[in-house]
Each structure stands twice: as C-alpha cells, then as structure tokens.
Design a protein around this nucleic acid. Structure first.
Lengths: 151, 151
DNA sequence: TTGATTTAGTGGCATATACCACTTTCGACG
DNA sequence: CGTCGAAAGTGGTATATGCCACTAAATCAA
C-alpha cells in the first residue's frame, strides 16, 4: 500500500483521545496556572474532596488509575501541604486521604479558574456537544474491553 | 454546598478525557504488549511512517504535542534502533526523522495487534459511535480555545 | 491456631508530556 | 556586510502514569 493512501492517525481511537487530551491539557493548565495547580491536580483534589476521606484504592478505582500512579501523583500535593493521609483504624492496610485546610482553600481558588476554562470550552465546542462527549467518555471508562480468551 | 450534592468529576471535560485515555491506554497497551511497543510509540512510528521524512516540528504540530516532549519521546525509539534522524541539508536547524528498516518491521508487527485492539473497541462501543467520537476529538484538537484578552 | 491466599500500598524504573532557558541557524534590513 | 529577531531543537526539571516486585495486614482453610 503506497504511503499516500494510508489512513491518517485519525483512524485510531486511542491516538485521537491522546491528542485531544494534550490539547485540552494545554488549555486547562494554561487557564488554571495562576492557582499554581495543574488541572490534573485540581481534579485529584476535587475527587478527594467529594469523597468521605476516601481510601487510595477507592480514588484510584474512581479515576480508572493505577494505584501506584495515584501514589506518585499524590506526593507533590502532600509535600505542598494540600493533602494528608492517615491509616484506617479498622484496617491498617488501608490509607485514607483528605484535604488539609490549605488544600481546601487552594481547591476553591482553582475551581474558579476551572469554571472559566470549562465555560470557554463549552462556548467553543457547544454545550450539547460537550455534554454528549462527556457521556461517551464516561461510558468508555466503565466498559469492559477484555478480549475473550482465545480458548 | 453540602458535599453530597456536588457534581461528580464527570462534569469536567478534561477529567473525563483523561480518565478515558487512561482506560484505553491500559487496553491498547495490553493488547500491543507482545510487540514490545507501547501504543503511544506505535502511534508515533506510524505518524513518522506516513510522513515524508517529516521534521520534528511537523510531527509535533500534527500530534498537538510540545516539541521538546516529542524529542524526549523519540529517544527510546532511537536508542532501540527503530528511528533515525538527520539534519535537513537545506536548513541545518531542521532535523528530519525516519524509520529504520527495523522500525518498519516492528511497526508492521505492532499494527497487526493494533487492529485487534481497534476492532475490539469498535465491537464494544459500536462502529458509528466510535466514528463520531473520533470526529469530535479530531475537531477539538483543531479548535482555538484561547481566551480573548480581557482588554 | 497456623499456614496459604488475598488485599492495599510502596518503591523502583521507564515512558509521556509540559515549560523554560539556551544555542544554533536563517533570513531580513539597514 | 553585520546585526537582530524569528525559527528549530536540546537539556533540565517536574508532573503524570504504568508495571513489577515486595511488604504488611487481614482472611480463609485445614
């Protein structure tokens, strides 16, 4: 097959997803920069906030994120005093996470900027379209793609 | 506002995008693992392949990726002998990129696995829905979200 | 009760990505 | 010509993420 007729990268669902994620990351991060938080960090703080002192595993599951990745991502937030952890008294394997007072203040600050970015996104893309997009993405995160065993 | 009534993370376009990206990354990477390439690397090799010895800047632009990020990402592929670079003879600032013979062979191998993952995705999500999703994501990557100056 | 199994996290290592400061080259202009 | 600003990459630093091997704690079984 001559190269000229090969399909572009646009045929790959994953590549498109990554590319759009980079794009939005650049945008959201830029808008939220004044808060000092990356958009990823703001999202993580928010996820912790809406939970009830969630366990690390619970957070990781909610975000479809590897547990160890969550641990790594949490480190700068702990270092900067926005988040703290403590062992669950009933099961010492479990480590629970919560925002500090500072973390809550910082989250408030970042959320205001988030709203700006979010609003701008919806203005440019369209409210309906954005809503549908989020719904599809939400679905995908919950689906089971495991290939049936070749047996 | 009581925490219980706060909207979930599902309201954020960027968070949804990231979460779905993690999900698909785990899936595509898993399927493509036997080739030894991550799905991101396969995508990058493909992008280079369909270009005509593209310049780094051209690749970065096509992928909406930071130029320095591309440089970093390329390193393991160069180290492993899949990709090589050379200065453009007409403009020594420009560095062009191409696949090595080995890179081409490896790409072929990875593409076969990619097709499996891609097909599975479309089976689970639906062909039409996947197509619409890719189209929306493609649009987003091309949009301009810059906020008009507050002036 | 005790030994095997499972569950929850940690730490190390590797890739993915971004931003910034810096260097090298070009090209435009006086 | 020189000079100067723009263009293309590089390297450093930092976060984001994943997998694997390992440890500690709880559970299940015999």
């Amino acid at each position: 097959m001559p190269k000229d007729t090969l399909p572009g990268l646009t045929a790959c669902n994953y590549a498109m997803l990554r590319r759009a994620t980079r794009k939005l990351g650049q945008f959201y991060d830029d808008v939220q920069a004044p808060s000092g938080l990356k958009a990823t960090q703001q999202g993580l703080l928010y996820q912790i906030h809406i939970g009830d002192e969630p366990a690390m595993g619970a957070i990781a599951a909610a975000l479809v994120m590897d547990l160890s990745a969550l641990g790594h991502t949490l480190k700068p937030l702990i270092r900067d005093g926005f988040v703290e952890t403590f062992a669950d008294p009933d099961d010492r394997r479990i480590k629970r996470v919560r925002l500090t007072r500072q973390g809550l203040i910082k989250l408030d600050e970042a959320m205001k900027l988030w709203q700006v970015a979010q609003q701008r996104f919806e203005d440019v893309v369209g409210k309906e379209k954005a809503e549908r997009l989020r719904a599809v993405l939400d679905d995908i995160s919950a689906l089971d793609f495991d290939l049936p065993p070749a047996a």
